Simulated scan of single mutants.
Amino acid sequence: MSLNSIGLDSKKAADLAKDLNVLLANFQIYYQNLRGIHWNIKGKTFFDLHVKFEELYNDANIKVDEIAERVLTLGATPLHTFEDYMSKAQVPVGKDVSKDENAVRLIVDSLTGLLKIERALLNHSDEANDEGTNSMMSDFITEQEKTVWMMKAWLNETV
């Protein structure tokens, strides 16, 4: 087994970076979805949702940077083209979403997709003894589960 400069198995680190790039691509799509619904939301809940969507896209933007920096820390190159993002897309792409319920549903569906990717990454990072990625995924999952719960409550649905 060959170790990289941060003490991880080089092959496992490369595999994790590949998986993180999939997460990065999907987070970029989620981020763009949030920008779109922030710009296009209409109706009686405009003021509340416009602010909430801005909060979410600012958070997603920070997470995109954290994911890309983790890919670099593992010794790989982060994906950075829309072509790459679309080829790895697993979360839905929202287009012309302006109705409040559809916008919130898009967030729930996107986060559900991101959580699946993150849980798989959490398992892989645990197997690779990669505490950095493990901790990041754990934090993301905890926060996103709460957001899903809140959005589902807004939709008057249970988790």
Rank of each mutant, 00 (worst) to 15 (best):
L20M: 09
L20N: 00
L20W: 01
N21P: 04
V22N: 01
L24Q: 02
A25M: 06
R35I: 07
R35L: 09
W39V: 02
I41M: 10
K42V: 08
K44L: 10
F46N: 02
F47H: 11
F47I: 02
F47Q: 04
H50V: 06
H50A: 07
E55N: 07
L56H: 12
N58P: 04
N58M: 05
D59W: 04
N61M: 13
I62F: 15
V64C: 14
E69V: 03
R70S: 14
L74P: 09
G75S: 06
H80Y: 05
H80E: 06
H80C: 06
F82G: 12
E83N: 07
D84S: 14
M86T: 08
K88T: 06
V93M: 05
G94E: 03
K95N: 12
V97Y: 00
D100P: 09
E101W: 07
E101S: 14
R105K: 15
R105W: 04
L106R: 00
L111P: 02
G113W: 01
L114V: 00
K116Y: 07
E118V: 06
A120P: 12
L122F: 11
H124M: 12
S125G: 11
D126N: 14
A128H: 11
N129I: 06
G132E: 10
T133F: 12
T133L: 13
N134M: 15
N134K: 15
N134Q: 15
S135R: 11
M136N: 08
S138W: 08
D139Q: 13
F140K: 05
F140Q: 11
I141V: 13
I141S: 12
K146T: 13
K146R: 13
K146C: 12
